[in-house]
Design a binder for these strands. Structure first.
Lengths: 149, 149
DNA sequence: TAGGAGATTAGAATAGTTCTAAACTTAGAT
DNA sequence: ATCTAAGTTTAGAACTATTCTAATCTCCTA
């Protein structure tokens, strides 16, 4: 069972990433990066705020939004919106990719672009520049024998 | 140049459709159906409201929302949400289909399911039930010689 | 150790939609 | 024609997610 944390970064590394992206590495920003770049999985602003409140005595919701927007502008985070929710979802996977939505849990999974083939035969008026694809269905963990539940 | 109206219905036919779907055909509902089922193309609630105000002396925004939700529940209309806008968009095309978004104009086009082939090679944990696909790009009208602009 | 740019903050504002509770309309039984 | 009950419409309040505003705070540079 591998850990679900994608990539753990030290505070140093986060500071460097921020500075490299032209963003002043303040306490609040470093903390939020720790969460959104290392721990979280498709969090909403609300989830980031909740987490930040636990890990930083005092932080305002406005700062959470400001920071998330700053990170998006700096190219460290992607902003996503899906039909099943009105909340913006943040994704630190900066590769172009698609998503799978588990209908039961509402949980999102990244799907590599290479795992899906899309071919569209459209009238030539339609000049395709990109696809937004949300696959929805059922995520069934522990399918293999000896699943650990 | 064929008219863009998809299917024109008489007031009678609309009343029948409503009754058939178990919805009382009130004046407001018939009027709104006239617009969303016959005239409009992917309207928002706001657009429906604007149109309704012009064609019916007095109608409240609440009624517009109530009616649209009633039509969705009755299976006469689909509710769509896309990442480029926070507004719900209504679609009277009840076939399963995809959409094309013209980046410049923000205009949406229905894309028949058969015009697009999607094949996903995912781990078997992912049991696919459906795809939400938004193709985005450039809609270039008048590509053929003799375009009428 | 003062100046100033930039960051943070609380709370107001905004947008889109839903809720509430009262008034109105309608359908059906008489 | 009349009554009643159920269903519809309405204005405005409420709600949710997010952005804005303007004051305060921080901290780099000189």
């Amino acid at each position: 069972m591998k850990p679900s944390k994608k990539h753990c970064l030290t505070q140093q590394e986060i500071e460097e990433q921020l500075r490299g992206a032209g963003v002043q590495p303040t306490l609040q920003r470093i903390l939020i990066c720790q969460f959104v770049l290392c721990e979280a999985d498709h969090p909403t602003a609300e989830e980031v705020h909740l987490w930040a409140e636990k890990n930083l005595a005092k932080i305002s919701l406005a700062t959470v939004y400001n920071t998330l927007n700053t990170l998006v502008d700096a190219g460290l985070l992607k902003e996503l919106k899906f039909p099943h929710s009105d909340k913006v979802i943040y994704d630190d996977n900066m590769e172009e990719h698609y998503h799978f939505l588990d209908r039961k849990s509402g949980k999102l999974f990244d799907i590599a672009k290479g795992d899906v083939k899309i071919s569209a035969q459209l009238a030539k008026q339609f000049q395709i520049q990109g696809f937004d694809l949300l696959i929805n269905g059922n995520y069934q963990r522990d399918l293999k024998k000896g699943g650990s539940l």
